[in-house]
Design a protein around this nucleic acid. Structure first.
Lengths: 187, 187
DNA sequence: CCTTCTCCTGTACGGTTGTACATGTACAGA
DNA sequence: TCTGTACATGTACAACCGTACAGGAGAAGG
């Protein structure tokens, strides 16, 4: 009954390794050999499961958005439970930046989508999720779009500068965009 | 009197070509040969003026921030002259996105700074400029930081999705963060 | 004219890359 | 047990890479 051969699992191992490598060295520096070493599988395995390196990279990036999407749902739940949504949102953003590598990976993917149209649907899916959450917070779609841009920009800037998140500035901005009713506590 | 030999000019030609290539294919895919072809100079020239490819890429990226910095000053002037700064800012952002390649190059640089510390000063310089402008608009540093994040996020998202800028959403957000006095017209 | 220096470039080389593939191995069905 | 099929991998190769460098070519000073 025990499966000595586990193609599905092995495939996933490779994809997860690819994600880690991309997060570390960036999309442009990824090679079959780096991924194989990280996954602790022979080089041949990486070419067996994916016809081309680009396929592997794209798969890894899609997987990364899947993760991000899941995390976003956790955000939504936490915000629903919270009675101080501004503080909660700021905390969530700060928490997101705690895993810098994961964040870097996602923004690498994000920007890659700007150049590679086949990655765009994944990126758009995440962005739609964020906008949905923000719209609920801001009490309106337009302000929600703006709030999502604010969150996105704050994350990007924190990553780029390497400085810790400017929570006061962020809080001021979020408070300015969240609808007063939401700030007060009730829906 | 005519200078057949023009080392300075040739060097600049190579750097500008490098900028274009980076904008097109991304930082990770840049090669000496691509740059040489784009600049219409022999391969040897690209290695003559720059000891290593990385030096060339870094130089090109610094040059790009220099351009961005100059553009930012133009923004500041235009905003000073304007009597409807919200509209002007939205228009400036839309105008920035008109040259998609240039914008892509800058955001590539931006994200590259997240991984390469030696690029961070350039990126930080630009961000400080943006924050300065935004602080003047928002009437306070904290709100200015938030407004800068909003602008940055809006640009990034427009680049990533490939969709045209959501001007209504952006306008709503900017209006919410710009100080009422500034919105009305006076300082 | 010659010398000298900087600019310039074609060619070459060692190293790394993506990918192909022959060979082997474990498992399922007969 | 035998056989076929999917899984697995070590090795090989052509292509491309960054970089080095010998040597040509023009300008400047004598």
């Amino acid at each position: 009954m025990s499966v000595r051969r586990d193609p599905e699992g092995r495939r996933r191992t490779i994809v997860r390794a690819a994600m880690r490598v991309i997060a570390e060295v960036g999309r442009g520096q990824v090679t079959h050999r780096l991924i194989a070493a990280r996954a602790e599988v022979p080089l041949g395995s990486t070419t067996y499961y994916f016809p081309t390196l680009d396929d592997l990279v794209v798969t890894a990036m899609r997987e990364a958005t899947e993760d991000a999407r899941a995390q976003l749902e956790a955000w939504a739940e936490e915000l629903m439970r919270s009675d101080d949504q501004v503080t909660t949102l700021v905390d969530l953003i700060a928490g997101y930046l705690a895993d810098r590598e994961q964040a870097l990976l996602e923004y690498e993917l994000y920007l890659a989508a700007a150049r590679a149209p086949d990655l765009r649907p994944s990126a758009a899916l995440w962005l739609d999720g964020l906008r949905g959450i923000c719209s609920r917070l801001a009490g309106g779609y337009e302000r929600g779009v703006a709030l999502a841009a604010l969150v996105d920009g704050a994350l990007l800037q924190a990553l780029v500068t390497g400085d810790p998140l400017d929570t006061e500035g962020l809080r001021a901005g979020v408070a300015g965009l969240v609808s007063p009713r939401t700030t007060a506590g009730s829906t």
